[in-house]
Write a protein that binds this DNA or RNA. Sequence first.
DNA 1: GGTAGACCTGGACGC
DNA 2: GCGTCCAGGTCTACC
Length: 291
Amino acid sequence: MDLILTAHPPFSFRALVRSHGWAQLPPFDWDEQRGVLKTVSELETGRVIAIALREAPDGVCATIDADLGADEREEVACQVHRMCALDRDLSAFYLRARREPRLAHVEPRALGRLLCAPTLFEDTVKTILTTNTAWSGTRRMVEALVAQFGAPLQSDPAGRAFPSPRRLADSDEPTLRRETRLGYRAPFVLALANAVASGALDLESFRSSPLPTPELRRELLAIKGLGPYAAASLLMLLGRYDYVPVDSWARRLVSEAWHDGEPVGPPEVEAAFAGWGEWRALAYWFWDWPR
DNA sequence: GGTAGACCTGGACGC
DNA sequence: GCGTCCAGGTCTACC
């Protein structure tokens, strides 16, 4: 069955998929040639479904490999809205970006949306797995997590969803370390899974949180394994762009662009984009950096 | 509040 | 093939 969902214009599905590295991490599977992004999702009922997303005239078309009930259809529609940030209105950012030559490309190319996972739990675990490791390490850890703990598709057991909090909470630290090579991150992921599975932490409520961004950031920083970089990254996925995710790459870009290659720290990176106010992170992320 | 050292893994490198 | 070193953010202990 197909679901056609409308996006706040302008919208580009390819720009969304290419916005950052998420499309390279399972269960996402991006077919560049056909412009189709597949993923596998475990619904609240425990049902595991395959979703194929592609561009539609005014948004996206989601093809699901099963007939869904009304509640399931509603849940999938919500997930697609989250993944594609369909409701995101970036007009105020575009207005400012028009006046900055290094951001003049964002509006014509409909840049600004960032691909999200179906759940904030998946985004948070993946973000923890981006810290203190190379991208190849992140891919390896996520692949192992999905392969070892993801619920399989009935129609194709090779396809697996991202592990639910419950499935990870049912594991233990030695198993996680042994099976997925998460290293010291294993207790962080396990604690997060336990907190979400037990109901002690309502991570999904962060998406609609009325809290000001600094307070929401404090809530994220209270989660073990999330520091300033990871919290800023997750805030971007939540549509809050007040904090630049400062990692070694950001420091290098800012160093080369404004400090003659001299080493810089987070204060210099933040200062470089301070003038962008609530759009700091987007300005940094989509900046046309000199090659 | 700021800082040093530990955490863990994979990859690069030298032998 | 083996050993060593390094890069990558966050946590904890300490000052």
